[in-house]
Design a protein around this nucleic acid. Structure first.
Lengths: 132, 132
DNA sequence: ACTTATACGACCTCTAAGGTCGGATTAAAC
DNA sequence: GTTTAATCCGACCTTAGAGGTCGTATAAGT
C-alpha cells in the first residue's frame, strides 16, 4: 500500500538525531534506539548499512558511535529510499522486464508515466528538508 | 518499496479491456483472464469487489459478464487504489495514530507533508488517463 | 585484561500478498 | 426442467519479505 518500511523510518529518525549535533560529535546506536524506542539490533544494522553507503561515519570501540558524513542537502529522498529498499517503482516492469504479461499488457505506458511523476516528487525532496 | 499490488494491476488491465467496449457489451472474467494471462479466480474476485464498489456492473448467468458502470474520468487513482488496497500512506501514523514512537517521533510532520504531495499526484490522475 | 562500542551473518516469527479450491446462485439455451 | 455457463463468495494453502533476535567477532579506550 505504498508504505515506507520501518527500516527507512528508523533511518530517517536516526539521521534527524545526528543532524542536530556538531560534525565531530558521536552518538551510539544504543542511545538513539533508547531515545526513540527503536529495536536496538535493527537500528544498528541499519546504521551499518548507511555507513557502508557513505551516509554516516562510524567510529568503533568505547566512546564510539555514528555521525553524519554527507551533506543532507545533496541527498534526495529517492536516493535514500533506494539505498535502503531498492528501486522505487509502482510495478516490477519498471525495473526488470521479466513479466508474463509483457506482450499483452496494456497499462505499462501510463503506469510508467505516473511512476515518473511520483519519483519526481521524491527526487525533489532532499533529506535536509525531511529533517525540518 | 512503494509498489502497487498485483490485484490493482490486474484491475487496471481489466478496466482497460472494458473501456474499449460499448456501454452495453459484456465481457466475461474468463475472457479477460485468458487474454492477459491473469490467474482467473483472482481476477474474478477482484472484479466482484469492483462491482460491489460500483465501478463495474455485473450480469449473471450464461452470456453474463462485466461492463463499466462509472465514468472513469470521475474516479481518481487515489480513490481506486484505496478501494482495493486501503489507505494510501507512507507511514501508519498517517492513518491511525497507534504508534510506539508517537511521543518521541521527530519526522512525523515532514513525512506527512511528503505524503500529502504524493497523494496529490494520484489525486490528479483519473482512471480515464490511465487507460490512454 | 576488561569493557564498550560497532560489524555482521544466521536465524526466527509472523503477516500479508498471491493464488487455489469447492460449492452456491443465477439465468440463458435446449 | 435439466443442463450449462457465468458470477458469487468464503475457506484455505503457500510463499516471500518485513521485522526482529542472537551469538560472536573485531576494534579501541581505560
Amino acid at each position: 500500500m505504498l508504505k515506507l518500511s520501518r527500516k527507512t523510518e528508523y533511518a530517517l529518525m536516526a539521521l534527524r538525531h545526528l543532524y542536530g549535533k556538531t560534525t565531530e560529535q558521536l552518538t551510539s546506536s544504543k542511545e538513539i534506539a533508547a531515545t526513540y524506542r527503536i529495536p536496538g539490533e535493527l537500528l544498528a544494522k541499519t546504521l551499518q548499512q548507511l555507513a557502508r553507503e557513505g551516509i554516516v561515519e562510524t567510529v568503533q570501540g568505547p566512546l564510539g558511535g555514528y555521525r553524519l558524513k554527507v551533506n543532507l542537502e545533496k541527498v534526495s529522498l529517492t536516493d535514500f529510499i533506494e539505498l535502503l529498499e531498492g528501486p522505487v517503482a509502482l510495478t516490477d516492469c519498471s525495473i526488470d522486464k521479466n513479466c508474463d504479461q509483457l506482450g499483452t499488457c496494456t497499462i505499462r505506458t501510463p503506469i510508467h508515466r505516473i511512476n515518473d511523476t511520483m519519483k519526481n516528487v521524491f527526487n525533489n525532496v532532499t533529506l535536509a528538508e525531511v529533517m525540518q
